[in-house]
């Protein structure tokens, strides 16, 4: 099994997202071409949590190499709730990377959250759901789901909760996170605008006198505008991002979904 990961992704496309994939070693003679079970479907996702809400967003383009598979392939999924349409769900999962694994992961988490309600007679907390998602991912540690997941909801106190993951289940609760193809373009913008990195109080002095601005939860309108700006900018500089922006806003009223067109070029 180890030899499986000793090769790079097939070079049929740009493959920016998995730049850390192991490179090919030409040491031990000719190597037979084997079936490679992963691909990269591009796209980007982003989540920001506020005092009373969490926003998850993702573009709706699906790519394979330089081809566009579809202009509307959602990366955001409601988890739990009732029936196949997840009515009344309060948790949202976003997955980016290998779309087939993303779908399989979504279905497993959704089934598990629904089973939880039948078995315990109450809705699962985001905290518990987040830990379970980590376990599902780690359960396939040696044949991972090739996805970066972000889970959003409201915690027991009604505050916005956002959990981000790596493909093998390492996770943490954060204020904001960008994932996927354009994560390296979006994340520094979020660091600066949400966590106020490198921002100083202009009223404070110069040099050592400078005082860092203290980050605090942002209002919902500001966050929505930040998300739109992040994606319109990412579309300009990354070919795998575009077509449409899907947003899911989780508040105590429920999940509100919006769609905004992005450039289709």
């Amino acid at each position: 099994m180890a030899s499986l990961f000793q090769q790079s992704m097939p070079s049929t496309g740009p493959g920016y997202s998995f730049a850390s994939a192991p490179t090919h070693h030409s040491s031990s003679g000719p190597r037979q071409h084997a079936f490679y079970p992963y691909t990269d479907n591009g796209g980007s996702t982003l989540g920001i949590s506020g005092a009373t809400f969490t926003i998850l967003a993702g573009d709706t383009r699906s790519t394979s190499g330089y081809n566009i598979n579809s202009r509307y392939a959602p990366k955001l999924f409601r988890i739990g709730g009732d029936g196949p349409e997840n009515e009344g769900a309060r948790i949202v999962l976003s997955v980016v990377g290998f779309a087939a694994d993303g779908n399989a992961l979504k279905e497993r988490l959704d089934t598990m959250v629904k089973m939880y309600r039948y078995q315990h007679g109450k809705e699962i907390s985001v905290h518990a759901c987040a830990q379970r998602l980590s376990h599902i991912l780690y359960g396939k540690r040696f044949f991972p789901y090739y996805v970066t997941a972000i889970l959003g909801g409201l915690d027991d106190e009604g505050k916005g909760a956002l959990y981000s993951y790596d493909p093998v289940g390492s996770y943490e609760r954060e204020q904001c996170r960008a994932a996927g193809a354009a994560s390296s373009l979006i994340m520094p913008f979020l660091d600066n605008q949400v966590n106020l990195k490198n921002q100083y109080d202009p009223a404070s002095g110069e040099g050592l006198e400078k005082v860092m601005r203290v980050p605090e939860p942002l209002p919902q309108e500001t966050v929505e505008q930040l998300v739109r700006d992040a994606f319109t900018s990412a579309v300009e500089r990354h070919i795998e991002v575009g077509d449409g922006l899907q947003m899911m806003i989780i508040t105590k009223e429920g999940v509100q979904e919006t769609f905004t067109p992005l450039k289709k070029d």
């Binding site: 992963y38 598979n69 579809s70 392939a73 290998f98 779309a99 779908n103 399989a104």
Partner: peptide
Amino acid sequence: LLGTTFSA
């Protein structure tokens, strides 16, 4: 063959 699905 990878199980990838999409619609358009």
